[in-house]
């Protein structure tokens, strides 16, 4: 199954994914979005990791999904692997945000809901775009390959091969340490 896979080591912090995410979920679908009555907000965010590395953070569409299980009104559903919010059923109780292990659920007014009340606001996997055979907006915006769209295992295999190709028996003595390895060393502390 296809989904968005994040390779944080490639993120340069340009925030284009945030921008295009907001635009893709707006009414006008272009830069006029900022003048809409209810301007859209991004559903992906880029934050600083250690050492000023950038970290793109978004819903992982878990399976099973704690948010979906916790929702008392069944406003959160899953279709083709994508966990999304039915804005008309949301009662803004906050259960989803409380149980989300990655803190990626927010609350904003969504123009799609008739009453202008805040609702659970998270990545919907660009479900509308995907149905039209388009790739998710954040992936389209990403010029450095930090956000990829495709079969999870195929994308991971690609990354695995990339990492493998940098291996050499005299690895530790090389001046240039591969990026992934450097991050791993850091995370290991």
């Amino acid at each position: 199954m296809k989904s968005v896979v994040v390779f944080p080591e490639r993120c340069i912090g340009c925030m284009q994914c945030m921008f295009e995410c907001a635009v893709a979920h707006s009414q006008s679908k272009n830069f006029n979005a900022i003048y809409e009555e209810t301007p859209p907000k991004p559903r992906i965010h880029v934050y600083s990791a250690k050492e000023n590395y950038a970290f793109p953070s978004k819903c992982r569409h878990c399976e099973p999904a704690p948010c979906l299980e916790a929702c008392p009104t069944s406003a959160i559903r899953r279709e083709e692997g994508i966990v999304f919010v039915d804005v008309e059923r949301c009662i803004n109780c906050g259960m989803c945000a409380m149980v989300c292990p990655f803190a990626v659920v927010r609350f904003h007014i969504d123009w799609k809901r008739i009453e202008k009340l805040p609702v659970s606001y998270k990545c919907d996997g660009c479900i509308e775009r995907v149905k039209e055979d388009e790739i998710p907006a954040c992936v389209e915006a990403c010029k450095v390959g930090a956000l990829r769209y495709g079969d999870v295992n195929e994308l991971i295999e690609e990354a695995e091969k990339r990492i493998a190709s940098t291996y050499s028996p005299i690895f530790e003595r090389r001046e240039e340490v591969p990026e992934n390895y450097k991050i791993w060393l850091e995370l290991r502390g």
């Binding site: 925030m15 945030m18 921008f19 295009e20 859209p40 907000k41 991004p42």
Partner: peptide, 28 residues
């Protein structure tokens, strides 16, 4: 898609305290 911040004139590279961007959606 071309840079949204730059397309709206909201990015500034005039000094190295930056580069800076203003969030047009009001969150950032």
């Amino acid at each position: 898609p071309q840079c949204g911040y730059c397309s709206l004139g909201l990015s500034c590279r005039n000094c190295t305290m930056g580069p800076c961007r203003i969030d047009p959606f009001g969150e950032g």
